[in-house]
Design a protein around this nucleic acid. Sequence first.
DNA 1: TACCAGGAGAAAA
DNA 2: TTTTCTCATGGT
Length: 231
Amino acid sequence: MTTPQPRIDRRRLHGAFQRLLDQHGPQDWWPSKGGPFEIMVGAVLTQNTAWTNVEKALARLHAADAMSAEAILALPEAELAERIRPSGYFNIKADRLRQLCRWYVDGGGFDGLARLETPELRRELLSVKGIGPETADDIVLYAFHRPVFVVDAYTFRIFERMGLIDTGHRYEPLRAAVESATRGPAAERVGFFNELHALIVRHGSRVCRPKPDCGNCALRRMCAYNLGRLD
DNA sequence: TACCAGGAGAAAA
DNA sequence: TTTTCTCATGGT
C-alpha cells in the first residue's frame, strides 16, 4: 500500500524557509568544494555519518590521489576501505563507491550522464546497489543541479514538529509534496531546494535534535514539540 | 557510558 | 508491506 502524498502549504513552507535562513544564514552547500565527482563520493560516505568524519575520509582519498572514478576502481577494495575508514561502515561503503564509480564510467562520466533527463538520471542512480533515494537525490541536486528536493531524517522530524506534515509519511510522497509546493524556473528551484535542505541539516543537527534546544529557535512559536503537542 | 550522526539492503514478521 | 537487524567510526 502506498502512503498518500501530503499536501504542503506553499506559503508556510516558504515562511519556514525564511525563518531558518534568518536564524542560520546562507549555508553555501555542498560542504566540499571538489566538483561533481567529489560530491557523489561525499554523498555515499555521509550515509548515516557525521560530515566531520566524511571530511577525514575525503582527505585520505586525496592523499592517495584517488579522487576520480578510475583511480578508485584501480584501488584494491581493502585499500579503498582503509582509506575511507574514518567515515564508518567502511567495508560496505567501499563496495558502494566502487558500484557508483562503475556506473559513472560506464555512463560516460559527468558529461555523458548529464545528457539524461532528470527522471531517467534518478532512475539510473537508484538502480545502483547502495544508492538509495536520499543519496540519489543528493547527487541529482548538488552534483547535477537538477530541481529535486532531498528528504532526510531531519526533514521528517522538523516538518512534523512544525506541523507541515502529519507523522508516518515516507520518502517519495514527502519529496513530491515539497516539489509540488514550489513554482518558478528550474534554476530558481535548484537554488531553493539546495538551501532548504542545507538549512534543514544545519537546524536538525544543531537545534532540532531528538532532545532539542528550543530556547533561541526561530521556529519555536510554530513548533508542536516546543508547544508540548508532540513527543 | 550511552547516545547520536545528512542510509541502505537483507531478512524476518 | 512493514519492521528489525546489520554495518562502524568519532564527537559530545
